[in-house]
């Protein structure tokens, strides 16, 4: 079960690092190119959300990112220590961008729309965003 784990101090420039590592791990696992791109966008969104939440609620704690390959496919988890909330609906989109501080629920809505298999796991300690992609069978 090959696993890559990253811990990022919640600083905006690290989000790009997370995208690059996620893409490298996904390519290594054999994820098709169009899904690698989907992973890049989704992981970037999840990390932006986590970094913004940590900046507001847990500036001293790292954001954790796990990329795990197993028989079920490729799993990416972004683990934060911020408060959760339900995905935003699009009834009044502009209201979610008050003063350009993006409501973190927008990120969850984006993730839900970008990736077929998304799980948002809220605990007292924070939120885990779990994204999954199936992997094509390996040649024997």
């Amino acid at each position: 079960m090959p696993t890559v784990e990253l811990q990022l101090s919640p600083q905006p420039h690290h989000v790009r690092t997370a995208r690059l590592v996620g893409v490298a791990a996904a390519r290594r696992a054999g994820l098709p190119d169009d899904l690698v791109d989907e992973l890049r966008w989704a992981l970037g969104e999840a990390c932006s959300r986590a970094v913004a939440l940590h900046a507001a609620h847990a500036p001293d704690q790292p954001v954790r990112i796990l990329v795990r390959e197993d028989t079920a496919g490729l799993t990416v988890e972004v683990v934060d220590a911020g408060p959760a909330g339900p995905p935003a609906d699009d009834a009044d989109p502009v209201s979610f961008f008050e003063d350009e501080q993006v409501d973190p629920r927008v990120s969850l809505a984006v993730l839900d729309g970008l990736v077929d298999d998304v799980e948002i796991i809220a605990t007292q300690a924070g939120t885990t965003v779990r994204l999954r992609w199936p992997l094509p069978p390996r040649p024997v």
Binding site: E45, V94, V106, S107, V110
Partner: peptide, 16 residues
């Protein structure tokens, strides 16, 4: 090549 919700927020801010 990449746009996240932070970028959306900036565009909405520009629109306002």
């Amino acid at each position: 090549e990449f746009l996240d919700s932070t970028g959306l927020g900036v565009l909405v801010g520009g629109l306002k």
